[in-house]
């Protein structure tokens, strides 16, 4: 079976134990303000246009049949909502200014690609990680990849925002060795403000995984000035005590590597536009959490 993804990233060191290959699936139910992978939002392909590389030759305009591309006083204008991601313009562009995020691939091919690095996984205790977006936006495809992975003897991780039906978690449960479960903000209102979705469902799923004896790593994106609050840290600490299955609490300090992508893919919402967290900030957060008595912190300061 096929699904849509936008990247396969080998030698990933941050998405679970050991050396891993991370599969980035398209589609996400949340819209976190700080997202560094905005190209993952939509469950379909989308065009990206890099103005810096464009030499305004307009070869692309000539082949576009939908009117998504046009010339306006010597500059190229991209009307993203008209684009149907046919990809014709991409072959025309001599400067690689245009590209598509998202391609379809079968679960089997993906796993075969991942298996090229099996030896590295075996030596490091690594494996495959499904990420996104939210993998469970494509539940059957996710299931299929996990099945194929398990057949091939791979260690599996899934990175999830928690926003999916409990039944989906129940289905994948036996095939997942580790859940990298995001915890972004306490309080449903605040959560909605930051991510455009409430958090009740997310917390229920976390509970569910805990009672189902899943192996959970709690991953907390921390954005300076947004959720680096005492209140939030206390909530994290409480979870670390209440949920026995949380084997590790990991902070994900905000970085802005993905900032430039917002404009390129034509998002109306701008990127957060704040500087990345520093290493000192990260250490401070870990120290603060340690002081609050948070258990299983990934980093001991």
């Amino acid at each position: 079976m096929e699904g849509i993804l936008f990247d396969i990233q080998p030698f990933a060191l941050h998405d679970g134990p050991g050396i891993r290959t991370t599969i980035f699936l398209k589609g996400c139910p949340l819209r976190c303000q700080w997202c560094s992978n905005p190209e993952s939002f939509l469950k379909r392909s989308n065009l990206s246009y890099n103005r810096e590389k464009c030499i305004a030759c307009f070869s692309c305009v000539r082949v576009c049949e939908t009117g998504a591309l046009f010339e306006l006083s010597d500059v190229l204008v991209v009307q993203h909502d008209l684009c149907n991601a046919c990809g014709k313009c991409i072959d025309e562009c001599p400067e690689d200014a245009l590209k598509l995020y998202g391609y379809r691939e079968s679960a089997r091919n993906i796993v075969n690609e991942v298996l090229k690095d099996k030896a590295y996984f075996d030596n490091s205790g690594g494996g495959i990680t499904l990420s996104g977006g939210e993998p469970l936006m494509q539940p059957d495809f996710t299931m299929e990849i996990l099945k194929e992975s398990k057949k091939a003897g791979l260690h599996t991780c899934i990175e999830t925002c928690g926003f999916a039906a409990e039944a989906e978690y129940e289905k994948i449960l036996p095939l997942v060795d580790m859940f990298l479960f995001d915890y972004k903000a306490g309080g449903s209102e605040k959560h909605r403000l930051l991510t455009k979705q409430p958090n009740e469902l997310i917390l229920e799923n976390l509970e569910f995984l805990n009672t189902s004896m899943a192996n959970i790593v709690l991953r907390c994106p921390i954005v300076p000035g947004v959720n680096d609050t005492l209140e939030h840290f206390k909530a994290i600490t409480k979870l670390s005590h209440d949920l026995d299955q949380i084997t590790e609490v990991e902070l994900m300090p905000y970085h802005n590597y993905g900032e430039h992508k917002y404009e390129q893919i034509g998002l109306s919402e701008p990127a957060l536009g704040i500087p990345a967290a520093t290493e000192e900030q990260e250490d401070q957060w870990y120290a603060d959490l340690a002081k609050l008595g948070c258990k299983n912190l990934k980093k001991q300061i």
């Binding site: 080998p10 060191l13 998405d15 991370t22 970085h255 590597y257 430039h260 990345a276």
Partner: peptide, 21 residues
């Protein structure tokens, strides 16, 4: 951010980011 990449392939913004770290 969790994966490795050729430095020269990164967009300038990201290069600066890596640098600052």
């Amino acid at each position: 951010g969790g994966f490795s990449e050729r430095f020269v392939n990164l967009p300038p913004e990201t290069q600066n980011e890596v640098l600052s770290r």
